[in-house]
């Protein structure tokens, strides 16, 4: 079966892809924190910060349409939250934007700032995930001190998500092929329970088989990988550039606005 592999671009090659996963992770984390702590009613500075993830996406060769489509997919909750702002905050404000000047309410300003921050932080996260192979990210996280049990768990989970989603698709198709009308809630619930139950049993069974296979190959609960993570000069350069971008923008904007 075919479904879009969310992180299919992680297997490309570019200067961004070759960076150390730890450095990228920390930079994205700090970037997100910086963007979130920006004033709640300043849209323009958020736009300035958008340059960072945008550059990384372009350098990494990630299609922008992919990124924005993905953001749209996860936006409903934030969208509801942002759109409820104008309803509750009707303080009139005058928005001055270069040669333009118009009346608006504080709620709308907040609404757009929330959306702006959401898009910028999501761009940063997409930039991280779609330029880093998940295995490398996990190794990096382990070096950063995440417990090994959790890393193994995440690795297994990532490996089998798409396998099980395929199985769920098979079951769903079988149901669609046999259901011709709405059967009422009770029957629907019963069918869904049987589907979930059989999916669960199949998962448990395949887990048993996988376990036997892994034991016979000497799995003792720890993973050994070939990837050697080491911080190189380019990684330091990237971290330096990212830091100076965030700090520089901050310092540059601050005095002008006082």
């Amino acid at each position: 079966m075919h479904h879009a592999y969310i992180d299919k671009f992680a297997y490309q090659d570019s200067p961004i892809h070759r960076l150390d996963s730890r450095v990228k992770f920390i930079v994205v984390l700090v970037f997100t924190a910086v963007v979130i702590s920006l004033p709640r009613i300043s849209l323009s500075i958020v736009v300035c910060y958008a340059v960072g993830p945008f550059t990384i996406l372009v350098l990494g060769g990630i299609p922008l349409r992919f990124a924005f489509k993905h953001i749209l997919l996860v936006s409903p909750f934030v969208l509801v939250l942002a759109l409820s702002c104008p309803l509750y905050d009707k303080t009139p404000v005058t928005v001055v934007f270069g040669p333009f000047l118009w009346q608006s309410s504080l709620g709308w300003v907040r609404c757009f700032t929330i959306l702006g921050k959401f898009i910028v932080t999501m761009l940063a996260l997409i930039a991280l995930v779609s330029t880093t192979r998940f295995g490398d990210l996990l190794t990096g996280l382990q070096r950063l001190g995440v417990p090994k049990l959790l890393i193994i768990q995440l690795g297994f989970l990532y490996r089998y998500i798409f396998v099980l989603i395929d199985r769920a698709h098979h079951i769903l198709r079988a149901r669609a092929g046999r259901t011709l009308r709405n059967l009422g809630f009770k029957a629907e619930l019963k069918i869904a329970a049987a589907m979930l139950g059989s999916l669960l049993i199949r998962s448990i069974d395949s887990a048993e088989r996988i376990n036997i296979a892994m034991q016979s190959r000497g799995f003792d609960g720890s993973w050994r990988t070939l990837s050697k993570l080491q911080i190189r000069r380019t990684d330091l350069l990237f971290a330096l550039m990212a830091a100076s971008f965030m700090l520089g923008l901050y310092i540059f904007v601050r005095p002008v606005l006082q």
Binding site: F156, I204, N211
Partner: peptide, 15 residues
């Protein structure tokens, strides 16, 4: 149990 836990995590997604 490690494999079982990992796959049950994937089961949550499929479910």
């Amino acid at each position: 149990k490690l494999a079982l836990m990992g796959i049950l995590g994937a089961f949550v997604f499929a479910a």
